Amino acid sequence: MRSGVGSGAEAVARNGLRPAIHRTGNCSPQPGEDEGDAAARELGEETGIIVPAADLTQMRSYGAPGRDPRGRYVTVVFTATLPEIMTPTAGDDAATARWWPLADLPPQLAFDHAKILADIANIQPATDPSG
């Protein structure tokens, strides 16, 4: 089984006032990388947003057979809370990179990505940092 971190098109989502990264690009860890290192590397390469792997929180994995018509893939979801909103810049093989409010995502997302984002939105609710 090939292990990948996400699949489909690049997306960055912001949940309320607390920025959260959701990366849905396809990558495999390089030799010597664990999945967190791979997620941090790909996030930087494809959005220009640099987050150390130690600052990523692994939330969940999705690997049900048949979830991706291209074959057996496992998606490992990470989030990060950023100190400020950073402007993503498409790089590497990403066509675009931008913030998407969760309520305004396109109606058609690849495979089970709508479920993944809904799950993460429920796990990590928006909070107002000003109290």
Score class of each variant (00 low, 15 high):
Met1His: 10
Ser3Val: 14
Gly4Asn: 06
Gly4Ile: 01
Gly4Thr: 13
Gly6Leu: 05
Gly6Asp: 05
Ser7Cys: 14
Ser7Trp: 12
Gly8Tyr: 03
Ala9Asp: 14
Ala11Ser: 11
Val12Arg: 08
Val12Ala: 12
Ala13Lys: 04
Arg14Leu: 13
Arg14Met: 10
Asn15Met: 11
Gly16Cys: 03
Arg18Asn: 13
Arg23Pro: 02
Arg23Asp: 10
Arg23Trp: 13
Thr24Asp: 08
Gly25Cys: 09
Gly25His: 07
Gly25Gln: 02
Asn26Pro: 00
Cys27Arg: 04
Cys27Met: 08
Pro29Ala: 07
Gln30Met: 09
Pro31Phe: 04
Gly32His: 06
Gly32Ile: 06
Glu33Asp: 10
Glu33Ser: 09
Asp34Gly: 09
Asp34Arg: 07
Asp34Trp: 05
Glu35Tyr: 00
Glu35Pro: 02
Asp37Phe: 01
Asp37Leu: 12
Ala40Arg: 08
Ala40Pro: 10
Leu43Arg: 04
Leu43Lys: 05
Gly44Ser: 13
Gly44Glu: 14
Gly44Cys: 08
Glu45Tyr: 03
Glu46Val: 08
Thr47Lys: 00
Thr47Ile: 02
Gly48Arg: 05
Ile49Met: 07
Ile49Glu: 08
Val51Pro: 11
Pro52Leu: 00
Ala53Pro: 12
Ala53Trp: 10
Ala53Val: 06
Ala54Ile: 07
Asp55Gly: 06
Leu56Ile: 00
Thr57Asp: 12
Met59Cys: 15
Tyr62Pro: 02
Gly63Tyr: 00
Gly63Glu: 11
Ala64Asn: 04
Ala64Pro: 02
Pro65Lys: 07
Pro65Asn: 08
Pro65Arg: 08
Gly66Phe: 00
Arg67Ile: 06
Arg67Cys: 04
Asp68Ala: 07
Arg70Ala: 14
Arg70Ser: 13
Gly71Cys: 06
Gly71Asp: 08
Arg72Asn: 13
Tyr73Met: 10
Val76Ile: 15
Val76Ala: 11
Phe78Gln: 01
Ala80Glu: 11
Thr81Met: 12
Thr81Cys: 09
Leu82Lys: 07
Glu84Ser: 12
Met86Gly: 01
Thr87Gln: 15
Pro88Ala: 01
Ala90Gln: 01
Ala90Pro: 04
Gly91Asp: 01
Asp92Phe: 14
Asp93Pro: 00
Ala94Phe: 01
Ala94Glu: 02
Ala95Tyr: 08
Ala95Ser: 12
Ala97Asn: 03
Ala97Lys: 01
Arg98Met: 06
Trp99Phe: 01
Trp99Arg: 02
Trp99Lys: 03
Trp99Asn: 03
Trp100Glu: 08
Pro101Leu: 03
Ala103Pro: 01
Ala103Phe: 03
Asp104Ala: 15
Leu105Asp: 04
Pro106Cys: 10
Pro107His: 07
Pro107Trp: 00
Gln108Ala: 10
Leu109Ile: 04
Asp112Ala: 05
Asp112Pro: 00
Ala114Trp: 06
Lys115Gly: 13
Ile116Cys: 10
Leu117Tyr: 10
Leu117Gln: 08
Asp119Ile: 04
Ile120Gln: 13
Ile123Ser: 12
Pro125Met: 04
Pro125Phe: 04
Thr127Ile: 13
Asp128Lys: 02
Pro129Asn: 04
Ser130Trp: 05
Ser130His: 04
Gly131Glu: 06
